[in-house]
Computed example of a mutant assay.
Amino acid sequence: MNLEDINVFLQIAAAGSLTSAARLLHRPKATVSHQLRRLEEEIGAPLFIRSANRLVLSDAGAEFLDHAHGIRRACERGLDSARAGLEKAQGTMRIGSTGEFASNLIAPLILHFARHNPELRLELSVVRSDLLLSSRENYDCLLYLGDPPMPQVSEMTGRLLGRFRFGLYCSPGYLTRRPAPATPADLREHELLAHQNAENITLWELRNGDEEYSLHPHTRLLSNDYWVIKLSAIHDHGICFMPKFFAQHEVEQGLLCRVLPEWSSRQIPLHVLFSSHRLRNTQISDLINSLTQNFSDLQTYLYTATAKTDYFR
């Protein structure tokens, strides 16, 4: 029995379709279909039936599901035990990450870890939060921005890596055309640059001590990419709400300035999640230690092509 075929079966069971499973596995749909057929031929029974445009487990598939999970967990435990005595990390480590700030938050931390583990092959996949959780078993660990939803991750171990806050920013040029807001309520009279995650516009939740203010930004410029939002703010298109570490370099260069600086978001956490049975995996613990130790240095990391200095310890 092929372990990769079992992995395909588990992903289809989680995703509910061949198309979704193929996208999450980064494989052609035909390959995923072939692997499923091969497993079904070996078992001697269909593992899925089609219902309302979804693939649902057949009786045989439901019976096999727990065993398939057990087979994969046993292989992972064996691999973790075999690698425990190695002096240097080797093999392949698969890391899944949510899409927000992957290039600015996740990538610098992972690249630092890769530099100090040259014999370890790293595969970093960046996907939407909902898709990441549905494909979590494809990865050795997940880097999840925000509070992980329960009970989807109840079987996983979570470690907090660090926290950061959002602030309000615009360009000096924008403030030559419009007076700076004096209160959060004044934001409703300004041109706002908003972020959209999947189908929802990100709510601006502001705090100043014990005071709180929430705003559903009404905007004529909406993007699911914070780089687009930041570039729009730099070019005088309005006020944006983004992480302080993400805007710090532009503030220092005079391209952006803080708006209502006493108001900011709550602290946003970044967690690493991994299956509880992987606790013996020293590579995961080394990654967690590296990410935690270097998280605060993101405040000084430059994201330009000429910034080749290793700012991390």
Rank of each mutant, 00 (worst) to 15 (best):
L221F: 14
L206Y: 02
A185C: 08
N208L: 06
H195Y: 14
E212P: 05
Y213N: 10
S214H: 15
L187D: 02
L206I: 07
L192F: 02
E189I: 04
E189W: 09
A198T: 05
N197D: 11
H218L: 07
N200M: 10
S223I: 03
D186Q: 00
H195M: 09
E205Q: 12
R188E: 12
E211S: 15
H195A: 15
E212C: 12
E189R: 14
E205S: 15
E199N: 15
Y226E: 09
H190V: 08
R207Q: 12
E199D: 13
N208W: 02
D225W: 05
L222A: 05
E212T: 06
P184Q: 01
R188C: 07
E189K: 09
I201E: 03
W204S: 04
Y213H: 15
H190P: 03
L206K: 00
Y226C: 07
Q196D: 04
L192C: 05
P217E: 03
T202F: 02
P217Y: 03
H216C: 06
W204K: 01
H216S: 07
E205W: 03
L192T: 00
L192P: 03
E199G: 15
W227H: 13
P184T: 00
L222D: 00
H218K: 06
S223N: 06
N197I: 12
L221D: 06
E211V: 02
Y226I: 04
L192E: 01
D210N: 15
E191F: 08
Q196G: 01
D210C: 14
E199A: 11
L221Y: 12
N224F: 01
N224R: 11
S223W: 01
Y226A: 07
A185W: 07
R220I: 13
L221M: 05
E191I: 01
V228P: 00
P184N: 04
D225P: 08
T219L: 03
H216A: 11
P184F: 00
L203E: 13
V228Q: 12
W204C: 09
Y213R: 08
D186N: 09
L206R: 01
R188H: 11
D210K: 13
G209R: 07
S214E: 15
N208C: 10
T202W: 04
L215W: 10
E205R: 08
A185K: 07
H195N: 10
S223D: 08
R188T: 11
L222M: 12
P217M: 02
Y213W: 09
D186K: 00
E211H: 13
Q196F: 03
L215V: 04
E211G: 05
I201F: 02
R220Q: 08
W204Y: 08
D210A: 15
W227N: 10
P217C: 06
I201G: 02
E205P: 04
N224T: 10
R188A: 13
D210G: 09
N200V: 12
W227D: 11
E189T: 11
Y226F: 11
R188N: 12
S223C: 02
N208A: 08
H190E: 10
N224M: 08
S214M: 11
T219I: 05
R220F: 07
L193Q: 06
L192I: 01
H190N: 09
E212W: 05
Q196V: 15
D225Q: 04
L187C: 01
E199M: 13
R188S: 10
Q196C: 02
P217R: 03
W227M: 08
E199Q: 14
A185E: 10
R207W: 06
D210E: 15
D210M: 14
A194H: 00
E205N: 14
